[in-house]
Simulated scan of single mutants.
Amino acid sequence: MGTVDFSWALTLPREHISTLLAGRLAGAMMMGLGLSPGAAGAMRSNVQAAGGYLVMHSRAPAFRVVLSVSGTRCRVDVTDQAFTHPGQSATTTAQSNGHPQDHRAEQAMLRRQLANSADAVEVHHSQLGGIQVRFQIPLLQIVPEPKVEG
């Protein structure tokens, strides 16, 4: 049997309660893929942490969560509506446009938190003030379906 590639997206208002909902829905999607409750819980907490970062630091009215499953990996993008320059790092942005807020300490803390159960963790701020948090979750912990005899 081959792999199934798909993408799932959700846009919510930039409020704390939305981060909880996004995390729960992302965790439920992982359970639907057959992952263990522990792996689904890690997805839930990572999406909530990334959403919380956007709620704290973004000025956009909403944020978007996109889960893209391809093979044995799930890429997660949490971004606000203002994000347009995916290659721009927060350090470069702060130096290039004199942005008064420097979030390097919070970024480092978020990266460490996400890296406990995710790979390829990135946190970007665009020159226009948009934010993107991206990470990958390995799907190697899939629980096999029980065989039905009949």
Results as ranks from 00 to 15, higher is better:
residue 39 A to I: 02
residue 77 D to W: 12
residue 73 R to W: 11
residue 134 R to Q: 14
residue 146 P to D: 13
residue 142 I to K: 14
residue 112 R to H: 13
residue 121 V to C: 01
residue 1 M to Q: 10
residue 27 G to M: 09
residue 121 V to Q: 05
residue 116 N to D: 14
residue 50 A to E: 05
residue 74 C to Y: 05
residue 88 Q to R: 12
residue 50 A to T: 02
residue 118 A to K: 04
residue 105 A to M: 09
residue 62 A to H: 03
residue 41 G to E: 12
residue 137 I to V: 15
residue 12 L to Q: 08
residue 144 P to I: 01
residue 109 M to I: 12
residue 150 G to W: 14
residue 52 G to V: 04
residue 44 R to C: 12
residue 131 I to E: 11
residue 21 L to H: 10
residue 75 R to N: 06
residue 50 A to Y: 04
residue 125 H to E: 15
residue 93 T to Y: 00
residue 110 L to I: 01
residue 6 F to Q: 05
residue 75 R to C: 10
residue 102 D to L: 10
residue 144 P to W: 01
residue 62 A to C: 10
residue 141 Q to P: 00
residue 144 P to S: 07
residue 81 Q to V: 14
residue 141 Q to F: 07
residue 92 T to E: 15
residue 65 V to W: 02
residue 125 H to N: 13
residue 20 L to N: 05
residue 66 V to R: 10
residue 60 A to Q: 05
residue 91 T to P: 00
residue 40 A to W: 05
residue 26 A to V: 03
residue 39 A to T: 12
residue 32 G to S: 11
residue 94 A to Y: 09
residue 2 G to Q: 09
residue 19 T to I: 01
residue 131 I to A: 06
residue 45 S to C: 07
residue 128 L to K: 14
residue 106 E to Y: 06
residue 106 E to C: 01
residue 26 A to M: 03
residue 53 Y to S: 01
residue 135 F to H: 07
residue 12 L to I: 08
residue 19 T to G: 07
residue 4 V to C: 08
residue 123 V to L: 14
residue 32 G to M: 02
residue 46 N to D: 13
residue 30 M to P: 04
residue 146 P to H: 10
residue 130 G to S: 04
residue 43 M to D: 00
residue 11 T to A: 11
residue 54 L to W: 00
residue 54 L to Y: 02
residue 131 I to M: 05
residue 124 H to G: 08
residue 143 V to K: 06
residue 110 L to F: 07
residue 138 P to S: 08
residue 4 V to D: 12
residue 142 I to M: 11
residue 90 A to G: 05
residue 129 G to N: 05
residue 8 W to Y: 12
residue 46 N to Y: 03
residue 24 R to K: 14
residue 129 G to M: 09
residue 107 Q to S: 08
residue 33 L to K: 06
residue 52 G to E: 06
residue 45 S to Y: 07
residue 42 A to V: 09
residue 46 N to Q: 10
residue 22 A to S: 00
residue 92 T to W: 11
residue 121 V to P: 03
residue 74 C to A: 15
residue 75 R to I: 06
residue 62 A to M: 06
residue 97 N to E: 09
residue 96 S to N: 11
residue 44 R to D: 15
residue 13 P to C: 07
residue 48 Q to A: 11
residue 35 L to P: 02
residue 80 D to M: 04
residue 10 L to K: 09
residue 37 P to S: 09
residue 55 V to S: 06
residue 66 V to I: 13
residue 45 S to I: 09
residue 55 V to G: 04
residue 125 H to I: 08
residue 140 L to S: 14
residue 111 R to P: 03
residue 147 K to A: 13
residue 128 L to P: 06
residue 35 L to N: 06
residue 107 Q to H: 11
residue 22 A to V: 00
residue 125 H to R: 15
residue 4 V to I: 14
residue 108 A to W: 09
residue 76 V to M: 07
residue 31 M to G: 12
residue 134 R to S: 15
residue 64 R to N: 12
residue 86 P to D: 04
residue 71 G to T: 03
residue 28 A to Q: 13
residue 46 N to C: 12
residue 117 S to M: 11
residue 68 S to E: 14
residue 137 I to K: 04
residue 5 D to Y: 05
residue 52 G to P: 03
residue 48 Q to D: 08
residue 30 M to H: 11
residue 11 T to W: 02
residue 5 D to S: 15
residue 38 G to R: 07
residue 139 L to P: 08
residue 41 G to T: 06
residue 23 G to N: 02
residue 143 V to Q: 13
residue 40 A to N: 01
residue 67 L to C: 13
residue 40 A to Y: 00
residue 9 A to T: 13
residue 127 Q to G: 15
residue 131 I to K: 00
residue 22 A to M: 04
residue 122 E to K: 11
